[in-house]
Nucleic acid binder design. Structure first.
Lengths: 192, 192
DNA sequence: CTAATTTGCCTAAGTCGTTTAGGCAAACGG
DNA sequence: CCGTTTGCCTAAACGACTTAGGCAAATTAG
């Protein structure tokens, strides 16, 4: 009797809407309830499409990881050495700035199987591609992958948490200084 | 008519118990309900001592930040240069290993006033103390504070999220390699 | 083109964590 | 010893999550 017209929900549509919601209100605030409100649909209806609230969040995380990997891949295409490193770094930081909620989502802890099936391994591979220009041999390359992953993630999180607000030094300047320093560090570690 | 004997709740007692709970089940799972269960007390009773669930979490975060700062201060006392850097790094990583829930708590986003009144500024000061041995001039020192904060936080988070599980290189080795590299980086940046 | 089936969203109902209001008895200070 | 404060209680409401079962629209088959 009501106007019925189905809402056209699918896991993909919900994931995408959830990602947008995350960017608007933060990943923590993404909730099946809020999503239902936005589609003007009852909450229970979403459960035909996603298994649970956690399932939804995992899907958003997978989307974010994939987008981030794509962006990083684009960034380093046709570059090497310092150029590749700077572009790679900028891909992460830019994504985090433009899509803060998605970036948070990408940091969701996934169980090992899910993680293995996600774009996470691509991130490692892309990092190794950047490092090709520095001629590190194992295990140095693995150490360097971990260093870069740590620095980028850590810096971006500190920055977005407002950790730099109290000091009058432009975060962009620090970022450039850090990228420069890492480039020098990696060149100094070259051994093969 | 029941055995009455008061439970002896105070904000401090609850905060401490919350911190222990965090280390057992993870900071996200810390809940006033669970805390009430552990004290064998009704949930509403906790609200005389903490304003809200969020208030409780903030208190745990402040405790963790303070403990972490104390530990870092101990670590660098009487050391300088590479020794200080290594001890400082180890203070963070060791705390995160021994108190994973508290470490997560320390990463809670605090509003600016709360953050300013917390031990967070001490962390910056301690980092600057470590950097004294490297003779960096401003703004290099600020850049370096941000670099170290980022690397340590980022690496620890990646490691505890299991991000290194798929590669057969000992995380301790990577950590040592990274600390070595950072030491070299900072010495190369000396300009004062 | 209609009948059977599948699909999509609904109502109903229960769980759990949070939070506020108001009460009663134990502890404490004069 | 009495009044006040303090500490924990009962009661009740809210919001998010989740499952079960139903009805009607969409799709597929005869």
């Amino acid at each position: 009797m009501n106007t019925v017209a189905r809402a056209g929900l699918t896991p993909e549509v919900l994931t995408r809407a959830g990602a947008e919601l995350a960017d608007e209100v933060g990943f923590e605030q993404v909730t099946v309830t809020e999503l239902a409100r936005r589609f003007d649909v009852k909450v229970a209806s979403l459960y035909s499409h996603v298994k649970s609230s956690h399932d939804l969040k995992v899907r958003i995380a997978l989307l974010a990881l994939a987008e981030l990997a794509d962006r990083a891949a684009d960034a380093i295409a046709g570059r090497s050495g310092r150029d590749a490193l700077a572009a790679f770094a900028e891909a992460y930081r830019g994504y985090a700035r433009e899509h803060p909620g998605r970036y948070e989502a990408a940091r969701l802890r996934l169980d090992p199987e899910t993680a293995a099936a996600s774009a996470a391994p691509r991130h490692s591979q892309l990092t190794r591609a950047v490092l090709r220009g520095y001629h590190l041999s194992e295990p140095g390359q693995t150490h360097a992958v971990r260093l870069l992953g740590g620095v980028f993630h850590g810096y971006i999180e500190l920055e977005s948490a407002g950790g730099f607000a109290h000091t009058p030094v432009d975060p962009q300047e620090s970022w450039d200084w850090i990228v420069d320093s890492l480039d020098a560090l990696l060149r100094a570690r070259a051994d093969g």
